[in-house]
Amino acid sequence: METVFGIVVDGIAYGMILFIISVGLSVTLGLMRVVNLAHSAFAMIGGYTASYAIQSLGFGYAGALILAIVVTVLISLPLERLLYRRLYGVENELPQVLLTIGLAFMVVATMNIIFGPTLKQIPLPELLSGPVSLGPKIISAHRIFVIGMGVATILGLWALLEKTDFGIRLRAAVDDPKMAAALGIKTETLYAATFALGSGLAALGGVLGAELLPLEPYYAIRYIVILLAVVAVGGAGSILGSVAASLALGILDTGAKYLFPNFGDFFFYGALVLILFRWPNGFFDKRAA
């Protein structure tokens, strides 16, 4: 029983980290229909910014987190204006894939030149470091913080997309861009704002997930498969879907690794195949609707 509890807690914590790093991709992929393979590159920019701010500029953890999001958004906006905007609504997704994977490689090379090939750390404040006891289970304080931030992100996004004017306009623009424009909705500004939201979430994930996915120049390429897996299972554009997919994959992966450690990632990808077989568009698909 103790072990089952331990696995569930670990699985939820792992799932929340998966959620935080992939939800931004779900936003850009689902709401804007851009296959952004450079998403983890934005996460990496956020992580490196936070690391640099704490270690060389003397920022605190919270300050560095905010700075990372701001810097990443500021870097991503000109890219949206100059590059991504040309690819909205193209028939064929190949140009998007080529552009964004190219961008990811450029970020990898740039980070390698500027910061060198060593691992970068984001030192945690006293409050978030070290283990915490949850009854029989010991878990790191940082993971509890990540779970909390994950819940806050879920609620924030839900309120933003379902309850605000911005959300209504965005959903209108996604469903029928021409009609939305005819009604006077400024779709270009709306798309830029959504893109900024996606890259800001990427930065948040890059910083919070750094304990599990350490920052190094190859980060951008190394973890994109996990991110895409979560988005594919959850259904692009669905916040609820991302939550369900992250938690399902997190708990399943943790449980399978405990019970059958020698099978490695077999169950993670096996589950991926089965889920997509049953729900080809993921748990909750907004694109097909």
Partner: peptide, 20 residues
């Protein structure tokens, strides 16, 4: 004797096994 995937990112399950 536990063998872990080379590409593993989360070791929580293995830690539980090591503990047990």
């Amino acid at each position: 004797s536990i063998r872990m995937p080379v590409a593993a990112t989360d070791f929580a399950a293995f830690m539980q096994r090591i503990k047990d």
